[in-house]
Computed example of a mutant assay.
Amino acid sequence: MTADAGERLVDGYTLVVFDLDGVIYLIDQPIPGAVEAVGRLHADGKAVAYATNNASRRSSEVAYLLTGMGVPARADEVLTSAAATAELLRDRLPAGAPVLVVGAEALRAEIRAVGLRPVSLADDEPAAVAQGYGPQVGWVDLAEASLAVRAGAPWYATNTDRTLPSERGPLPGNGSLVAVLRTALGREPDVVVGKPEPALFATAARRAGGGQTLVVGDRLDTDIEGASRAGLDSLLVLTGVSDVPELLAAPETRRPTYVAMDLAGLFDPAAVVRLPGVPDGGGWSVTVTDGGLALDGAGPPLDALAALCAVAWAASTGPAVRAESPEAGKALAALGLSA
C-alpha cells in the first residue's frame, strides 16, 4: 500500500545512498527529476552518498561530473568499485607490488594512488590481476590477464554487472568481460569487490555515523541484493535496468523494501509502495492461474504492483499477468506489462 498522506519515505532515513547509472544519470545525462530530488535532500539536511560499480571513473571525476549536471557532490561522497578494489589490494600486497590492470585509466590511477604499480603484461609477474570495465578493453588485455591468472596471480573483479544502461538500451558491462575470462579459465574470480557485495554500502553507512540508511538503485542483482546483504532498506526505481517482470520473479535476496517509478517516490507518499503488499490491497485482487497471475479490480498501478508481488513471491509463479478488468489492463500497461 502507498504511504499515508504526509508520510514521506525519506523522513525515515538520515542517509540516502544512490546508485548512479540508471538512477541519477544515463551515461552523462541526468535522469529527469534526479537533480531536483538530490536538491530537495540537501535542502532537508539529509546526508547523501553515491555508490557505483562503474570502475571507469575516479571518485573525483564522478563528483565533477555530478556537479556539472547540477548535482553538487564531493569526492568523499562517491564510493567506486575501482577505489574499493585498490584499497583492498593495498591491504593485501606489499608496497610497490605490480598489479596487472584490465580496464580504464581510472582503475590504473586508483592502483597507483595506493602505492601499487599498474602493469599490462603477464611477463611483468603481477602479484594480482584487477579487472574493471573499460570501453577500450580488448582481446590482448584479456589474454594477458588470462596468462597471469594461470601463472598464479589472484584475480580481483571490480564488479560483475552483466550490462550497463544507456540511452540506446543495455550494453555489455564488466560482468560480460569477466565472463570471457571465466570461460577461458574455467573458474570464478577470487574476489568480487563491488555490488552485490556489501562493502560499498557498509562503508557509506559507517561514514554517515548513526541513523537509518536507505539505498536507492535500479538493479535487483546489484543494488538491491547488495543492500540486503548489508542489512539496509532499499528502494527500487524503474528508471534503469530492472523492470517489473524481473521484480515479480525476484528471489528473496533481491527483493526491495520499496518500489517507485522514479525518485519522486522519495517525497510523494502516493508515488511509492512498500513490498510485498497484500494480495487484495489498494482495490486490487490477485489470483494464481495456470499461466501465472490474474489481476482484477481498480486503483493506483503501484498498489497493483505491490499486490502482484505478494502473490508472485508467495507462490513462486512466473511474471506473466492477465488483466481481468479494463482498469487492470491500464494498470498493467502503466507498469510495462502486457495485459
Rank of each mutant, 00 (worst) to 15 (best):
V272A: 14
E77L: 11
R58K: 03
D280V: 07
L181C: 06
A84H: 12
E246P: 00
L263R: 12
V137H: 08
L88D: 01
A130Q: 05
G68I: 03
A230E: 05
P154Y: 08
G231S: 07
V216Q: 13
G103N: 08
G134D: 05
R187A: 08
V237M: 09
G281Q: 10
L89N: 01
A310C: 14
R150I: 00
V216E: 07
A148L: 13
L232Q: 11
L238I: 12
L305V: 14
T239I: 09
G210P: 08
L247F: 00
D223K: 13
E61C: 01
L93C: 00
I27W: 05
A250L: 09
S338D: 12
E144I: 09
V215Q: 12
P30T: 05
K330G: 03
A145K: 12
G281W: 07
V259G: 05
L302K: 14
A151N: 08
A334F: 09
V101P: 03
G211D: 05
S316D: 15
G70L: 10
D190T: 09
G282A: 07
M1I: 11
T183S: 15
P135C: 02
V311D: 09
G231K: 12
D44C: 09
S166I: 09
A113P: 02
P300C: 02
P326V: 04
P170E: 04
I224A: 03
L214I: 03
E61F: 04
A264P: 01
A97V: 04
V99N: 02
D19V: 14
G283S: 08
L15C: 13
S242K: 11
F267T: 05
P279T: 00
S146D: 06
A230G: 02
G299R: 11
Y50R: 06
T287M: 07
G277L: 12
A49N: 10
D268F: 13
G173R: 10
D290L: 13
A5L: 12
A86H: 01
E197M: 10
D123M: 09
R229S: 11
V16T: 00
V192R: 04
E327S: 13
S234I: 05
D76P: 05
E125W: 02
L89T: 00
L79H: 15
V38Q: 12
P118N: 03
T213D: 01
G210S: 15
D303V: 07
R182I: 04
R187V: 02
G194V: 01
V17T: 13
L147E: 03
A95Y: 07
S56L: 08
A145M: 11
G240I: 00
L185G: 14
A63M: 02
D91S: 15
S228Q: 13
T158M: 04
G115S: 10
A208F: 06
L66G: 08
A63G: 04
A113W: 07
P196K: 10
A109Q: 14
V101M: 04
A106G: 02
E36T: 13
A298S: 15
L26R: 11
W155G: 02
G231L: 10
P301F: 12
L293I: 00
A130Y: 00
E225M: 14
A34V: 06
A307I: 13
A271C: 09
M69N: 11
L164R: 01
P126I: 05
A151I: 00
A249R: 14
G70A: 12
D296V: 15
Y156P: 00
P172F: 10
T52L: 11
G292C: 08
F18T: 03
G329Y: 08
